[in-house]
């Protein structure tokens, strides 16, 4: 289920603009890895390159190697569609499909695989995913109502259910709590702690307390200035990054001297 990601000298471009430069890191399975850094430092761009969502934008491409348990995700013949089926993603703003019911939303990814699933199995998968996202008790009586009728926090957990219904190897989260209130944020953070038993989780966050609370290791990204590419400054166990970082830049950021 859970797989290791290894980036080797990854450069990420938007057309001619180099957004991220020379990132090498290892993301461990069954753990939570947080990316922190100021706006525009490339942490979201790097996250989106992990499941090849980056190249959805016109002219965007990646150079370097990105290995999922040793297989290059950018290797010749690799289909980004298959990559995305194994590496799930949750976005900043909750985005359940408005035209689908809650149940249809959970099963949306599975339906793509054109699997003809018997009704009972569908129910089981749906319940398992919703339980996994801590949403089952709240929605079990209204599975056939539109997902857009839920609260923001519930919608975000619905999106997590939709992602884990695919049984991915990795779960990427791009600032999953930034549009949510504190109670919903807490619910998602608790959920992340439970999910890491089974998945490799990578989370981008603007909230340093959140990174400190949920993650096992933390990577700090920074940019030298506007127009300069973002770089990975330092990566290590979360406790160490937040107590005794090796680089002065990291310390300045986490102590709130900038950013």
């Amino acid at each position: 289920m859970s797989k290791r990601i290894e980036a080797k000298n990854l450069d990420i471009y938007y057309g001619k603009f180099k957004a991220v430069e020379d990132v090498s890191m290892v993301i461990e399975p069954r753990a939570v890895t947080a990316f922190i850094g100021p706006s525009g430092c490339g942490k979201s761009t790097f996250l989106r390159s992990l499941n090849r969502m980056h190249e959805v934008i016109n002219g965007a491409y990646v150079e370097g190697e990105l290995l999922l348990d040793g297989h290059d995700l950018y290797g010749p013949g690799v289909d980004p569609v298959n990559v995305r089926r194994q590496i799930g993603m949750v976005f900043q703003r909750p985005n359940p499909f408005p035209t689908m019911s809650i149940k249809e939303n959970v099963l949306a990814g599975l339906r793509l695989n054109n699997k003809r699933m018997p009704g009972r199995e569908q129910d089981e998968v749906c319940e398992k995913a919703l339980r996994g996202a801590n949403l089952w008790e709240e929605v079990k009586n209204r599975l056939d109502l539109p997902g857009s009728g839920l609260s923001g926090g519930q919608q975000q957990r619905l999106c997590i259910a939709r992602a884990i219904a695919m049984a991915p190897d990795v779960l990427l989260m791009d600032e999953p709590c930034s549009a949510l209130d504190p109670i919903s944020t807490l619910a998602i953070e608790d959920l992340i702690q439970e999910l890491k038993a089974n998945y490799t989780i990578v989370i981008v966050t603007h909230n340093m307390q959140q990174a400190a609370r949920v993650s096992d290791s933390t990577a700090f990204f920074n940019i030298a200035g506007t127009g300069a590419p973002g770089k990975l400054i330092e990566m290590g166990p979360t406790e160490q990054i937040f107590s005794t970082p090796e680089k002065q830049e990291t310390e300045n950021y986490i102590t709130g001297r900038f950013g």
Binding site: V81, R84, N95, P96, F97, L112, R162
Partner: peptide, 18 residues
């Protein structure tokens, strides 16, 4: 069509037609 939902579909491993 909202980009938000297009990305949601792509991230689930949808082809362009899907």
């Amino acid at each position: 069509a909202p980009n938000l939902h297009e990305e949601a579909a792509l991230a689930l491993g949808a082809t362009r037609w899907e």
